[in-house]
């Protein structure tokens, strides 16, 4: 009799665990889907070439300012080649200006100074100016820009 009861309760236990387990998995899957729904999709970033200058218009140690997504970008011709910097100061996001005479970038907000290589010369900026990857082709200077789609979601 006691054995029978034992058997019976073990069976109950197995059934309970199976059923509750299945139910938990179902609820878990449901929640997983809901969370996935809420998390933004991470897409692998892809890039394309973007023309910023022609070599013929770029004397050595001169910078050219263009605008990319509303933010200034500087193309600098150095002796060694071309560098392209974001014009956003790495300190607190003000726009740096190119000082032709001194051959340097100057941020008016907190007197940050960057060299024509983008290196911090003085002032508070914590790191050099952000750089774009440069691609040279024939007479052309391209940078690598992230692919973006038109629309409100990007």
């Amino acid at each position: 009799m006691a054995q029978n009861e034992n058997k019976q309760s073990r069976r109950d236990f197995i059934r309970n665990t199976t059923v509750v387990g299945a139910l938990i998995i179902a609820i878990g899957t449901f929640l997983r889907h809901a969370i996935v729904y809420l998390l933004p999709k991470k897409k692998k970033k892809t890039y394309h070439k973007y023309l910023v200058a022609k070599k013929t218009e770029m004397p050595v140690n001169k910078a050219k300012k263009i605008t990319l997504s509303g933010k200034p970008v500087y193309v600098v011709r150095l002796n060694e080649g071309y560098k392209v910097f974001s014009g956003v100061c790495t300190h607190l996001g003000c726009i740096v200006r190119w000082e032709e005479q001194k051959g340097r970038f100057y941020c008016p907000c907190h007197q940050g100074v960057f060299s024509k290589n983008g290196q911090v010369l003085s002032g508070p900026p914590p790191r050099p100016l952000d750089e774009f990857e440069v691609h040279l082709e024939q007479n052309l200077v391209f940078i690598k820009v992230e692919d973006k789609m038109e629309g409100p979601w990007t």
Binding site: V19, A26, T29, F30
Partner: peptide
């Protein structure tokens, strides 16, 4: 008891469908 089993079976069914959905 039968209802418990039904809960189990429908849980599995839901999981299968949700996996397909994914």
């Amino acid at each position: 008891k039968a209802q418990q089993w039904l809960i189990g079976i429908f849980s599995v069914l839901l999981v299968v469908i949700l996996i397909i959905i994914a």
